[in-house]
Structures are given as structure tokens and as C-alpha cells.
């Protein structure tokens, strides 16, 4: 039984091979032995794989682990293959916000026919205005946020009617 970790948008396989005398993990097919694994939880820890200990700082952020190692910071997620609501594949029905912010103005209304690139909503975040446009042709099904409303990153602002099978 292995685990999938996501780093920089890529999946990696990690499996436990052995625990004694040292922890051996198989990471992406290659075995690594760790003579030191550091303590649990957040903070400054050290790993030892080979001769030299490697210092790192770890912090947990909800379900995510943040690692600062070698002067760089990384975010690692653990995939849960059985979590609900995992949608496979891309879904172009939802127009999502690329960043948290506020709705400045709405340039469309429900029922409008749109083509790829039609501006739908102007949003603003951190004093930056951006226009969200339709990614494909279709019909505006629902506008989920009103002018002046704030939203978080990846929130759905506009929904298009789902694409039907082309004859």
C-alpha cells in the first residue's frame, strides 16, 4: 500500500519499506534510508539520509505540509483517493476566481450566449482589476456573486450551461 504525495503539481509515490534498524522509504521507485527522521509536528527538524543531516522547517496548514528546505519553500499534499467530490478531468462549466477579491462589475446576465473570450465579470484584488472571460462558447447559466461581494481563491463566480453532446 503506497501513498501519493503532490509536490509542485506532480504526483509522487511514497511507500514504507522498512522501519528498523532505520526507516526506509521507496520514493518514486527508489529506496532511501533515513537514519534520523526528526520529531513529530511543526518546527525545525533534521533528516539524515546518508552522511549529513539536513535541516528543514515544517509547518502544517490544514491538510497540507509546508516544508522549507535548502532555502526554498514547498507545499506537499497527500492525496486521499477516496475523498468525496473529487472531480476527475477538467470542467469548463465553472468560471472560477484566480485569486481572492471582490466583484467590481458584471458584464453578463443569465441566458446570455457567449463565445470564448467574452468578458463576463470584472473582479478586483489587491488593487488589481482583472476581467474573467468565458473559456468556451455557451450560455450563462447562473451568476453566483453580486457586485461588491467578496470571494476566496477558486470560488465559482459564473456557471455556464453544461455542454451537451454534439450530434
Amino acid at each position: 500500500m503506497g501513498f501519493q504525495l503532490i509536490l509542485d503539481g506532480e504526483e509522487h509515490d511514497v511507500a514504507i519499506v522498512r522501519r528498523r534498524p532505520h526507516l526506509v522509504l521507496r520514493i518514486d521507485g527508489i529506496q532511501h534510508e533515513f537514519s534520523e527522521i526528526g520529531g513529530p509536528g511543526d518546527g525545525l527538524h533534521a533528516l539524515k539520509c546518508g552522511k549529513h543531516p539536513i535541516d528543514f522547517i515544517r509547518a502544517s496548514d490544514n491538510e497540507r505540509q509546508i516544508i522549507r528546505l535548502g532555502g526554498r519553500t514547498f507545499e506537499v499534499d497527500l492525496t486521499d483517493p477516496f475523498s468525496e467530490g473529487m472531480e476527475s478531468g477538467g470542467n469548463m462549466d465553472a468560471v472560477r476566481s484566480p485569486m481572492p477579491g471582490t466583484v467590481v462589475s458584471i458584464q453578463c446576465k443569465e441566458g446570455d450566449t457567449v463565445v470564448r473570450g467574452t468578458p463576463l465579470v470584472t473582479i478586483e484584488s489587491m488593487k488589481l482589476q482583472t476581467v474573467l472571460s468565458a473559456m468556451r462558447e455557451g450560455t450563462v447559466a447562473e451568476i453566483l456573486r453580486a457586485e461588491g461581494e467578496t470571494f476566496e481563491k477558486d470560488a465559482i463566480i459564473v456557471m455556464l450551461e453544461p455542454e451537451t453532446e454534439k450530434a
Binding site: 509536490l7 522509504l25 520514493i27 518514486d28 513529530p40 527538524h45 533528516l47 515544517r58 535548502g70 497527500l78
Partner: peptide
């Protein structure tokens, strides 16, 4: 480097630790 980062995270997730 990647293996080190993954191991460091793996040892942090409660369920895998």
C-alpha cells in the same frame, strides 16, 4: 532534493507518521 522534501512531508502528515 525531491526525495528529501517528500520524506520531510511524509513524516509530518499525521496518518503516515
Amino acid at each position: 532534493e525531491r526525495a528529501q522534501i517528500l520524506a520531510a512531508a511524509f513524516l509530518g502528515f499525521r496518518q503516515t507518521r
